[in-house]
């Protein structure tokens, strides 16, 4: 009995980052319309992928990242595979720079996230422009990325607490 409960808790802990990513995707599909539709909705799954790829990639295996991306593609109705590629490439790039980010100040990590968000914007814009055959306006995308970068410290702290207090220690 105790063993099973522990097992269940283990599964819950191991899947928490993936669940958070999926909640982030659901938030992207809610009619939030922040500030009368002017405020863009931050892309929380990107924060989830970035954070766990730096601090504990084992808690967010690439299969989970893949499913988060596919869910986002299916739910927002975009081309299938776009966000899966974006999140997986993000994980690849971030994991290759893990050693640099470890033990750095949060400001530096935030800057790193801003760079990643810039790269992601470029990638999404390029793919969507290629698919639609015209150079698309970038303003909405940059607004959304700016919102994501702005909220990063908040979620970074929250995820940090969650990871260390609950997932690892608890």
């Amino acid at each position: 009995m105790g063993y099973r409960a522990e097992n269940l808790l283990g599964i819950l802990k191991a899947t928490t980052p993936m669940l958070l990513g999926m909640i982030g995707v659901i938030i992207l599909a809610l009619p939030l319309r922040l500030f009368e539709g002017i405020g863009p909705t931050p892309i929380i799954p990107l924060v989830v992928v970035f954070f766990w790829s730096i601090y504990a990639p084992d808690y967010l295996p690439s299969v989970s990242v893949f499913f988060i991306g596919i869910l986002q593609d299916l739910l927002t109705g975009g081309p299938l595979g776009l966000w899966a590629v974006v999140y997986l490439v993000t994980q690849f790039v971030v994991m290759s720079q893990r050693a640099y980010f470890h033990g750095r100040e949060q400001k530096v990590v935030w800057l790193g996230f801003a760079l990643v968000a810039g790269g992601v914007s470029l990638m999404v814009w390029l793919v969507m422009s290629l698919m639609s055959g015209v150079l698309l306006p970038v303003r909405t995308l940059l607004g959304q990325m700016a919102a994501t970068v702005l909220i990063y410290p908040l979620f970074g702290i929250a995820f940090g607490q969650l990871h260390h207090r609950v997932l690892v220690e608890g």
Binding site: A56, P57, D58, P61, S62, V63, V65, F66, G69, I70, P79, L80, G81, L82, A84, V85, L88, V89, Q91, F92, M95, V127, V168
Partner: peptide, 26 residues
């Protein structure tokens, strides 16, 4: 926790390829 599994990078690259193929086919 700190040591990555050996196949992790392989799986990651494989999934990047899979999703790129999905994107191309869509």
């Amino acid at each position: 926790g700190l040591g990555r599994r050996v196949n992790s990078r392989f799986v990651l690259i494989l999934l990047i390829l899979v999703s790129s193929l999905l994107l191309l086919s869509s």
